[in-house]
Nucleic acid binder design. Structure first.
Lengths: 247, 247
DNA sequence: GGAGGGCAATGTAGTAAGACATAGCCGCGA
DNA sequence: TCGCGGCTATGTCTTACTACATTGCCCTCC
């Protein structure tokens, strides 16, 4: 399932070509490339990190979709966030001997793997990269805040509208939206677990939103028919599009 | 309401005396002290940051309680987290021109104020402090994750149990628990807004937990009668007690 | 071609939680 | 001493959401 891939040189990183990420100096990119231990490719539904793991590694999702979650001891699961290319994984690990959450892929994915014991070197020799890592962490927190607002205070309909528009915008920025829509690899159980809803209620609410003509979903391709109405429904406020760091 | 206080030298910071925080070198403490622009004291219910603010400042809560929240345009409010002494405020601001959330005090509080344009200097000249800031950010995210798990997947009873034990443990670590219990400056509306519940339902659930003998709350003093039962109810997992950074 | 698994759709019934209204308590200030 | 505002308490009614059960569709695998 998991296997090593030939290591793509960071200088030719396909993500950097999208324009969504901020530039780095040659020295910084060399450092990242040197720190990058290997690259792995995994299938859909693979576990990258398990809850309670003590693996000391950091990852950058290079391609594919994944999600971060945690389960209660009786099996109830909450998805914290969905991960898209460029997202950084594993920092929480610094806080505890074990990983507080799990990470699982939704599609075939490739990931860059970094040993976490090089992290301190990174801060010491390239403070700008250290700053970038803080940025990425703060950004992740911002998204979780937003999800908490959804789950805590939005209705089921609003939550789904919010999730759709939010994922759509994030993917759009990475150039993942194609003419026939966005390939959305979530099933209804994922949506339910991300939004704190039951599977059945998610299904019914999705149908209602669909019947209202707000979106179409054919063969896993999502199209927002009326993004403005969707955004209004969700009380969505878009952050300005600025290049973001990439490690 | 807000007024400047005489600046406490960081070396004699009362928080450092609690033992809950990790040590810093003299040079680091000098840098922090130099970066600290001023100190402010505010009353209970003061707004430190408003949603949408464009103030470019960072804060450390030196004493008192506060909370971080956001409101939807129709007024529904979600509290993301409660802030205790030592918590760092304002980093999200780096991501956008405006502050995505508000911060309000629950008690009289004092805060250290740092200009955010010194932040880059901090990373450059004291990488270990940069690392600490990442740590604090990741830690905040961890707590929000936990809250999202509560609001998304725990029952009302479990949510309240979780909130109580979580706040209790955090406060305990800072030496804020006194023989007659912990001074808890939240009202039921705060609890409701943090847990995604209505005020009425919060009230009834509190009463039930109280009747079950799990806690007592007299004159704002919280005591956990049976912390183990509370923890079991909440499926609570405590992070190991390690010293944490302080800026 | 049939069995089986993963997923969406739908009906029914039950319940946890919300909405609304009201009342009591307490501290505070005029 | 009275009224007022902030907070907790409680009752009743409603509903959004969950739990459970079933059906149907589309794959894939033998």
């Amino acid at each position: 399932m998991t296997h090593m891939s030939p290591k793509i040189p960071c200088k030719q990183c396909p993500l950097r070509a999208t324009g969504a990420f901020s530039a780095n100096t040659d020295s910084e990119i060399e450092f990242i490339e040197h720190m990058k231990k290997r690259e792995i490719s995994v299938g859909a539904g693979s576990s990258i990190l398990r809850e309670g793991d003590d693996r000391k590694e950091l990852f950058t999702l290079l391609s594919g979709w994944a999600f971060r979650y945690r389960t209660l001891s009786d099996g109830r699961r909450q998805i914290f966030n969905f991960l898209l290319p460029g997202d950084f994984i594993g920092l929480q690990h610094q806080l505890d001997a074990r990983h507080p959450h799990g990470v699982e892929t939704l599609t075939e994915s490739t990931l860059c793997v970094f040993p976490s014991d090089r992290l301190w070197d990174l801060y010491r020799t390239h403070p700008a990269l250290g700053f970038d890592i803080t940025w990425l962490t703060a950004n992740e927190e911002l998204i979780v805040d937003e999800n908490l607002l959804s789950v805590g205070r939005r209705s089921a309909t609003e939550r789904i509208a919010m999730l759709m528009i939010h994922l759509y915008k994030r993917a759009e920025r990475l150039g993942m939206v194609e003419p026939d829509g966005l390939r959305l690899p979530l099933n209804q159980q994922h949506i339910a677990d991300a939004l704190g809803l039951s599977l059945v209620h998610t299904n019914k609410t999705l149908k209602r939103l669909n019947a209202a003509g707000l979106y179409t979903l054919k063969d896993g391709r999502l199209k927002l028919v009326n993004p403005a109405a969707m955004a209004r429904l969700a009380d969505y406020y878009a952050l300005p599009l600025r290049p973001r760091p990439l490690i």
